[in-house]
């Protein structure tokens, strides 16, 4: 401790009923449904901070979720929020964003919802450079239904529908998104809170399709099935095995079972959005 510090006497903790983030949360619904050590809550916490930092007026932000554990996010954020059917958050958000371009539309959903059942919508929205912020919490498994194999489950990982180990090749989601033409792509784990918050802020302010993959622990299902310990053990794993590589070739950022997780901001480009091009064409401006 520096010599200049003058510490006051210990004051202990305060026991309180409200949290500074409560104004952006539906605090009458807390505690939320997510399991102890689940990373989704941390991702939401980062999002709340990011939204504040982004300068976007709260009443102009709409959050759309699909089905699954992360699909419940919409219900906890004190914003205009919509909880769609499984996989369909992106097309719903597309309708909102095109009908009122003044709204900032955020899709907050899970890997199963966005990449598997909603995969076609994900790739097409990225291809169109639809003005959406997509936050994809990837916990490598279907949590809400009890731990089934996902299209992001690493090879050999055990799930209730791959009890002998997953034999399928998983998606490398940032690579997929880059191939489709997304304007912004970043990946962080929920351990990287400050960087995740920054990525979410950048994504919120990005004009175009912005995609943030959030690697998050699922201790109840993914970790238990694979004997990886507690959520805290997974956080330690991220600490030891996440490698920050900004601008990495997304081809190289696939995730294997308990292998290195490459994180960072991979893509940040500028190009006209769907609506800009559409209006350019339809009002004679041209882009």
């Amino acid at each position: 401790m520096s010599t200049a510090v003058t510490n006051t006497a210990p004051t202990g903790e305060r026991q309180v009923q409200h949290h500074p983030k409560d104004t952006l949360l539906r605090d009458d619904r807390l505690p939320h449904i997510w399991c102890p050590t689940c990373g989704i809550g941390t991702a939401v916490s980062c999002f709340v901070e990011a939204l504040r930092e982004s300068g976007i007026p709260e009443e102009k932000c709409v959050v759309v979720s699909g089905i699954g554990c992360t699909g419940r996010v919409a219900g906890y954020l004190n914003l205009d929020s919509f909880h769609t059917t499984h996989g369909r958050a992106i097309p719903f958000a597309t309708g909102v964003a095109l009908a009122n371009p003044d709204l900032h539309v955020v899709v907050f959903s899970g890997d199963g919802d966005l990449v598997a059942i909603g995969g076609n919508h994900l790739i097409n929205a990225a291809r169109r450079n639809m003005n959406l912020t997509v936050i994809c919490v990837n916990n490598f498994i279907y949590g809400m239904t009890g731990g089934q194999c996902a299209s992001t489950t690493p090879e050999t990982a055990r799930t209730s529908t791959s009890p002998r180990g997953n034999t399928e090749y998983p998606f490398n989601v940032p690579y997929l998104m880059e191939a489709c033409g997304a304007s912004y792509i970043a990946r962080w784990t929920v351990l990287h809170i400050r960087r995740l918050k920054k990525a979410m802020t950048e994504a919120l302010n990005k004009n175009g399709f912005a995609f943030v993959e959030v690697i998050a622990p699922c201790s109840t299902l993914y970790s238990r099935r694979n004997k990886l310990g507690t959520g805290y053990d997974l956080m330690k794993f991220y600490h030891d095995n996440a490698e920050i590589r900004h601008g990495a070739n997304t081809k190289d950022v696939g995730i294997g079972f308990q292998t290195k997780i490459i994180v960072g901001k991979f893509v940040d480009i500028t190009k006209p959005t769907f609506l800009e091009k559409y209006q350019g064409k339809t009002t004679g401006g041209g882009k």
Partner: peptide
């Protein structure tokens, strides 16, 4: 849209946007 599931959701979204 990319399919009819998307079409249906897009019109629901637009409706909620007024």
């Amino acid at each position: 849209m990319e399919d009819e599931m998307a079409s249906m959701n897009a019109i629901l979204g637009a409706s909620w946007a007024g």
